[in-house]
């Protein structure tokens, strides 16, 4: 029941504010409360090289680059220090299996922290 209800509530709340795409692995806290899934390239680790001189998006010239926004907000918003420190963390690939599920549940169960074994593999000889 909760598994069905929570995604509906979560989407109803987060869609109007952050244009939430229900990736199920929310990172808003570490991106200055700016959703990286609204980037046309869905980049989770910072801006691409195509950002325009005015700070707008390569793909949608009328839209501010979400990573420019995320950077500005991380600095200017009164967010907890630990959230700000997470801004440049390496975020793992999106787990497509979580699409449409509640990130709240995935946060509590720590399902959103599971990554494939090879993600955290040790360095090779290179």
């Amino acid at each position: 029941m909760l598994k069905k209800l929570l995604p509906v509530i979560e989407h109803a709340l987060k869609k109007p504010i952050w244009d939430c795409r229900m990736c199920g692995q929310c990172v808003l806290h570490s991106t200055g409360m700016t959703c990286p899934m609204t980037c046309p390239k869905t980049l989770r680790n910072g801006p691409c090289g195509g950002v325009r001189e005015d700070g707008n998006c390569e793909v949608k010239p009328e839209m501010p680059c979400i990573w420019v926004k995320a950077y500005d907000r991380t600095i200017s918003l009164p967010l907890p220090k630990v959230w700000k420190e997470h801004y440049n963390e390496l975020r793992p690939p999106v787990d497509m299996q979580l699409q449409g599920t509640s990130s709240w549940i995935n946060l509590v169960t720590k399902r959103d922290q599971q990554t494939p074994v090879g993600w955290a593999a040790p360095d090779g000889k290179h």
């Binding site: 046309p40 680790n45 390496l90 690939p93 494939p116 090879g118 593999a121």
Partner: peptide
């Protein structure tokens, strides 16, 4: 259709993992 299943930083980390002897899955 644009793919962008992973981003460049993630791709780099996956390459690093492969150079360390595993695919992303751990295989």
């Amino acid at each position: 259709r644009r793919v962008f299943d992973i981003d460049s930083a993630q791709a780099i980390n996956i390459a690093r993992g492969m150079a360390g002897g595993t695919y992303l899955s751990g295989r």
